[in-house]
């Protein structure tokens, strides 16, 4: 089916209406359309953000309200540095949303296991919020978060809010900590085994660095979660976001349009092939 989008290659004008530094190199921006309404979107999708004259970068949607998208941007390259440096009132170009979504609706009635690593909490956050807003539609809700150090943990306020929310089992593990840290230390995969959920009636959504997702998927598999009930959010070089430039290919998939959210059973074999 061909999508009737005015011109998916042409950015729309957005304005930065809120900017917050989350970590040393990571900011959160709220982007409000300058012309017209916010397009419809789903948790898991991404936008292409354009810094004037510098270039474009694919950034997942980490939240939205009626006024705009929230994007969490880590300054790692020329484009993301330029985007992360934007101030309230600045203009930015935005194309999107693009890509596949987390199976938030499909998971209704099941236990939901979220596993986030590092910045991977950002793309999962709208899915977590969506599940918590309709908490009664789901079974047990488990969130496992991995981070490098306690001070690198993303969205601590949101985590606290979710922790206080009804019936959510949240646990955080960091790779290194000093003795002040009261939480877990160790890789996040080790927190999956101890979580209480029915592996046969669960949907798992995993987002984080490639290696972390691979090992989390295996841990979930070992716990008895079927591979077709595990979802990962893949990262490749998204340039056009509409499947025409070829850069984001991962075997037969274009991550920009077939992903980024992909079912583990459809990609498990490919994940083990080097340099694919």
């Amino acid at each position: 089916m061909t999508v009737a989008v005015a011109d998916p290659m042409l950015p729309q004008r957005y304005r930065v209406t809120h900017a917050q530094r989350l970590l040393d190199d990571t900011v959160s921006l709220r982007l409000t359309p300058q012309d017209g309404e916010l397009p419809s979107w789903q948790p898991g999708q991404f936008n292409m953000l354009y810094a004037f004259g510098v270039g474009e970068s694919a950034i997942s949607i980490s939240g939205a309200d009626d006024n705009g998208f929230e994007h969490t941007v880590r300054a790692v390259g020329a484009v993301s540095r330029a985007i992360a440096a934007l101030q309230v009132g600045d203009s930015i170009g935005l194309r999107g949303p693009f890509g596949s979504a987390w199976p938030v609706t499909a998971a209704e009635g099941a236990d939901v296991v979220f596993v986030a690593g590092g910045l991977g909490l950002a793309p999962l956050r709208p899915a977590i919020e969506a599940v918590l807003q309709q908490r009664e539609r789901y079974g047990r809700v488990v969130l496992r978060v991995g981070a490098r150090r306690p001070q690198d943990l993303l969205f601590p306020e949101a985590l606290e809010r979710w922790r206080l929310a009804r019936d959510v089992d949240i646990d955080v593990s960091v790779d290194h900590a000093d003795t002040q840290w009261r939480g877990h230390v160790g890789v996040v995969t080790t927190l999956i085994a101890g979580a209480r959920f029915d592996p046969h009636e669960s949907i798992a959504m995993v987002c984080g660095p490639d290696v972390m997702m691979r090992f989390c998927a295996r841990s979930l598999h070992d716990e008895g979660v079927a591979d077709d009930r595990i979802y990962l959010s893949m990262e490749r070089n998204m340039k056009c976001a509409i499947g025409l430039c070829g850069h984001c290919q991962f075997g037969p998939s274009f991550i920009c349009k077939d992903g980024p959210v992909m079912r583990y059973d459809t990609i498990a074999d490919r994940l083990n092939v080097r340099e694919l």
Binding site: H176, A177, D178, T179, H184, V185, G186, G194
Partner: peptide, 23 residues
């Protein structure tokens, strides 16, 4: 309960490299 495994580093706070719990 919860147990932290630590390595002491002179001049620095001890580094916790793992925590262990029930079971």
């Amino acid at each position: 309960g919860k147990v932290a495994l630590e390595i002491n580093v002179p001049g620095k706070a001890p580094i916790v490299f793992s925590t262990l719990g029930e079971g």
